[in-house]
Simulated scan of single mutants.
Amino acid sequence: MNVLVTGGAGFIGRWVVKRLLDDGQAVWVLDDLSNGRKENLDEFVDHPNFREFIVGDIKNEKLLDELFEKNQFRICYHLGASINVQDSIDDPRTTFNNDTLGTFYVLEQCRKKLVKIVFMSTCMVYERSMAEQGITELHPTKPASPYAGAKIAAENMALSYYCAYGLPVTVVRPFNTYGPFQKTGGEGGVVAIFIRNQLKGDPLKIYGEGTQTRDLLYVEDCARFVVESGYSDQVNGEIVNAGLGRDISVNELADLISEGQVLIEHVPHIHPQSEIQKLLCNYQKAEKLLGWKPTVDLEEGIRRTREWIRTSHLM
């Protein structure tokens, strides 16, 4: 199949591209490189099914029109987005334009050409939950940041196209994803940042008290979930979670990664108002509809990520 991946030069996008190529699909990537990196795709440029990497903006309607007109895509995996919570608080306009308006432009092309779209959302849309069985797709949403608000708006637009036009649409909400090729600086890569600091001998810095928990999903499991959501009609019109089904506090994560070799420090939280205290995924719906479940546990995922950071000299 001809497949388009927006945001395909990003961390998760790169692994989605790899999975699609491994499955024998013909892949085009559109990315403006605001978050992604061209070198993430370097190993694929000579692959016979890697057709084209276009540096461009999802808000460029002319570019999108030409891409969709020329290539007869069957599936669009829409991962292109502004993803930083603090950036969305500082500059909500950019996040809204990229995540909501940009999604509308992609949806319009998919509608015109009847292309299935898998929309990448986030677990950050959920309201706080202390439920031990984990957060299901029926759990209330509560946008605690403009990033989460923009994603919910885009989700609703995507699902409206399923209802109004019969467009095959799937909304995926992966929980906190980590692994090789994640940036080792900035927000969103707590595992990568902790590992880099541990390898350098630097302190691991925790925002706030560190009691907040995260459900950490290894990136290859995440990519398999995203790709298979595109293949299956069972999840058309559905919102589907993916996670490990196990949460860990940031304090416990720091202890696990530090191995007692470096200091652990607590620093003031940069956006406490947008923190979600407990994130634990219930992925039963993905298991039921897609036959998907995670295969890489946290300890193995950390080992693989540490090895990649060490051998990539990113310390």
Rank of each mutant, 00 (worst) to 15 (best):
L4W: 09
V5F: 02
F11C: 00
G13I: 02
R14T: 15
K18A: 15
L21Y: 00
D22P: 04
D22S: 12
G24Y: 13
G24N: 06
Q25H: 12
L33D: 05
G36N: 02
E39Y: 13
D46T: 01
N49D: 14
N49K: 14
N49R: 14
G56M: 08
K62S: 09
L63K: 03
L64I: 12
D65Q: 15
D65I: 05
E66S: 09
A81H: 05
S82L: 08
I83M: 06
V85C: 01
D87F: 04
I89D: 09
R93N: 14
T94Y: 11
T95D: 10
L101S: 11
T103L: 00
Y105C: 14
Y105I: 13
Y105S: 14
V106I: 07
L107C: 04
L114K: 15
V118W: 05
Y126S: 07
E127D: 15
R128M: 13
S129R: 10
E132N: 05
I135L: 09
T141P: 03
P143Y: 00
P143F: 10
Y147D: 04
A154W: 11
E155W: 01
Y162M: 00
Y165F: 15
T170P: 10
V171N: 02
V172E: 09
R173Y: 08
T177L: 02
G179K: 05
Q182N: 05
G189Y: 14
V191R: 07
V191A: 12
I193C: 03
N197V: 13
K200A: 13
P203Q: 01
L204C: 08
K205M: 12
G208P: 06
G208F: 01
E209M: 09
E209K: 06
R214Y: 01
R214F: 06
D215F: 01
L217N: 01
A223H: 02
S229A: 13
S229N: 08
D233P: 06
D233F: 10
V235E: 06
S249L: 01
N251P: 10
N251I: 09
A254P: 10
A254N: 11
D255G: 00
S258T: 12
E259T: 14
V267I: 15
Q273W: 11
C281T: 05
Y283H: 03
G291Y: 04
D297C: 04
E299Y: 10
R306A: 00
M315Y: 04
